[in-house]
């Protein structure tokens, strides 16, 4: 057994996993407020990346300005989605909202394809690709940066959910009717959670765009993001972070063992197995809340 190699796989698994978490945090934010997994989160992530590209490469703004500006635009877009589409669905079955997010994803993919075409573009963040060695272990710098962003967002949201606005959002997640009864604007709260998830989509879009290029494939991150969110419990940000790490390590180490046996492609099988087993064995995920039984 080559321990150095195994630790390298594990550490890079952790880093990649945190990048999945980065994506999944957006899903969790929306799930908390709307009780649906947002099937458009992949589309939003791709749009976030394209908006950064449009502002930096096309309009010539420096990245340090283009990224916050894109975040601001996407923040507005998130609010707009609630105002234009979701508000009309208040009180309808949750499956209708789910279908709406699916429609939104298709719409976002179609729009980006129409505006920016299908060829892959690079983000050009300027993060060095020189190897970084931790002892004997090789680490990718962009993965390290992305993992740092994911952890920073995690801390920021944990703090945010202790503020008055954050507590109101958690109240909305608990009970719409009771929220209305004390004057909480449920509509604005739902809008805010979409806005925040859209900002998270910019962060994920920039990092993943740097890693795999900016094209339609960015929206497919949804599949791994959903797996992480479900494993974490759908409504827990801590769950999304831990589940991301678990999936990243299991996928990285597992594929190394399995690939030689099955001749490649075992990563997808591992992700599928994690998703299916979670739903079958532990539907609330690792940290999902159970509804409290009333006595």
């Amino acid at each position: 057994m080559d321990w150095v190699f195994l630790s390298e796989l594990a550490i890079n698994g952790v880093l990649t996993g945190l990048l999945y978490s980065l994506f999944a945090i957006g899903l969790v934010l929306i799930y908390k407020a709307s009780s649906v997994p947002n099937l458009a989160q992949g589309g939003l992530t791709m749009v976030g990346a394209y908006v950064v590209l449009a502002l930096s490469h096309d309009a010539g703004l420096p990245l340090w300005l283009a990224i916050p500006l894109a975040a601001l635009i996407m923040f507005g877009l998130g609010f707009g989605i609630e105002r234009v589409a979701l508000r009309r669905l208040a009180g309808r079955p949750v499956v209708m909202i789910l279908m709406l997010t699916l429609g939104l994803d298709i719409f976002l993919r179609g729009t980006t394809l129409a505006i920016w075409g299908g060829t892959s573009r690079s983000m050009e963040l300027g993060v060095s690709y020189d190897p970084l060695f931790l002892g004997d272990i090789f680490i990718s710098r962009i993965h390290l940066v992305g993992a740092g962003v994911a952890l920073a967002l995690f801390v920021a949201f944990m703090l945010f959910f202790r503020t008055r606005t954050g507590i109101k959002l958690r109240a909305i997640a608990d009970d719409y009717m009771a929220s209305w009864s004390v004057g909480i604007s449920v509509e604005r709260g739902v809008g805010l959670s979409w806005a925040l998830a859209s900002v998270v989509a910019v962060a994920a879009g920039v990092i993943w765009g740097e890693i795999q290029g900016v094209d339609q494939a960015l929206s497919l991150l949804l599949l791994k993001g959903l797996t992480v969110a479900v494993l974490g419990g759908l409504d827990s940000i801590l769950g999304a972070v831990i589940a991301g790490i678990i999936l990243g390590v299991v996928e990285n180490v597992g594929a190394d063992f399995l690939d030689p046996l099955v001749g490649g492609g075992s990563r997808e099988l591992i992700v599928a197995a994690v998703l299916i087993l979670t739903v079958m064995i532990r539907p609330h995920g690792l940290f999902g809340r159970h509804d409290i039984e009333r006595v």
């Binding site: 507590i167 109101k168 958690r170 608990d174 009970d175 929220s179 009864s181 509804d291 409290i292």
Partner: peptide, 19 residues
């Protein structure tokens, strides 16, 4: 009753406070 079950009582009171 319909309290916010996953919040603490103190947070329940905070949630109702006008912005």
């Amino acid at each position: 009753r319909r309290v916010f079950e996953h919040l603490t009582p103190d947070e329940n009171l905070t949630a109702a406070a006008p912005m």
